[in-house]
Amino acid sequence: MGFAEKWKRCFNRTIFFAFDRDRLWSGDGPGGDGAIRSTAACVAIDAGTRRVAAIGDEAHALRERKPDGITFVDYVQAGAFDDVDVAESAIRNEIRKRLGRRLIAPRILVASPGSIIRKRVINEAMVHAGGRQVITIPVPMAAAIGAGCPVESDRLHEILYFDRDWTAFALICRGILTVHKEIPGGIDQLMEDEFLGAHVSKEGLSDTGASTIPLLLHRIHLHRQRAVAGLSDGQRNGLTRAPLYLTGPCASRAGLADGIGRLWNRQVVRPDNPGRVVIDGCYKVMENLDWIIRPVKGAASRVTG
């Protein structure tokens, strides 16, 4: 391999990051070893000096010993960074583990929520941690790609993403997110609704009968109704024939797929490992980053959310 080729590979080195409530995932793209690794989304900080004592799985193991004078920070909350400074330390540590100290900083692809403010916070954290260029992809888009959804099809496809503390709903057509809603509350909220009997009837009236649904599913149902109301008749008919993709680290909860299928009278597709779909989607996108960033008609890029 000549010098020019080595320089090109070094310049194009890309790492992806994805995270949920408990884990931080990272993977290497072209020019790397292709390995995907995960570590605990936790950092241990010395309460006296305020210095980082341990990061990731080491911090998680330290937490189990319950040492005095150590504070533990879980820096991911609702799909975004709850403590930016701590998150930067964790990201910087992962980059150095993969690349060591390099003259050329890597590009970073990161799966993030669609909120402009949250996306900006994540972008800035990635740059401060050592990224040269940050490319964001909304979590529902990455989940759809990882789940095998034909995102470039002319037909609308529906995605639901369940984490512990947040939920995302999206409609995708021709590689673009036409609808992207993020709803506070995830599977923890759903379990609390069921435990407390916090249900709403399908007509929106308080009830406790068999025709009721948990409050969280009711909120998702309302967002979906508003989105579908803005579609043409042809789009609505196509949507009813297309499967709904149920994804996310908490999508495997017993009864969730059946309940959503009955609620919307839809075929529900749940991947074998729904918690891995965002990671798998990011890995696939890494093979063709031009697809995700090139402009398309009616949107700045394919990841417009």
Rank of each mutant, 00 (worst) to 15 (best):
G275L: 06
D165S: 04
N237C: 14
C149P: 00
S26C: 08
I176P: 10
L103M: 11
G69F: 04
A254Y: 13
G32E: 03
D85M: 09
A47H: 11
L244N: 03
R98N: 10
S153G: 13
G298V: 09
G204D: 04
C282G: 05
R174T: 15
S115K: 07
G2H: 15
G131H: 01
V228K: 04
D68H: 10
K6N: 15
P150D: 02
A80Q: 09
T136Y: 07
H60G: 13
Q225F: 08
A168L: 07
W291R: 05
P67R: 00
P274D: 00
A229D: 15
I70H: 00
D22R: 10
P140A: 00
A87W: 01
G56M: 00
G238W: 08
I45D: 03
L190Y: 04
M1D: 14
A105M: 13
I95Q: 00
D22S: 14
I260K: 04
A59F: 01
R92I: 11
D290L: 14
D165F: 03
T212F: 04
A254L: 09
A44L: 12
H223T: 07
R155Y: 11
I36T: 15
N93L: 11
A35R: 07
G27Q: 03
G255V: 10
V121K: 12
L246S: 01
I108T: 09
L289T: 06
R219S: 11
R63S: 12
I220W: 04
S232W: 11
A44Q: 01
L246P: 01
N123K: 10
I293P: 08
Q235D: 15
D272I: 15
I145E: 02
A257W: 02
C282F: 02
V200E: 12
V277P: 04
L216H: 03
D165K: 04
I135F: 07
I70L: 08
D22L: 11
A59Y: 03
R65I: 10
T71V: 09
G204A: 04
H60Q: 14
K66Y: 15
C173T: 14
Q267F: 14
I220K: 08
L289S: 02
D233A: 09
A143K: 02
V277K: 04
G131Y: 00
R236C: 08
S112D: 09
D193R: 01
P67H: 03
R98G: 12
L156Q: 06
L222P: 06
L103N: 07
H218Y: 13
D85C: 04
A129G: 02
A90H: 03
V303H: 11
D74Y: 11
G261T: 07
A170N: 07
C282V: 05
H221V: 11
K8T: 15
G131L: 02
R294K: 12
A41M: 03
R226N: 12
I45Y: 01
P249D: 03
H60Y: 14
V269W: 06
Y245A: 04
G230F: 02
P249Y: 00
S38V: 07
F19G: 06
I122W: 00
R51W: 06
L156T: 07
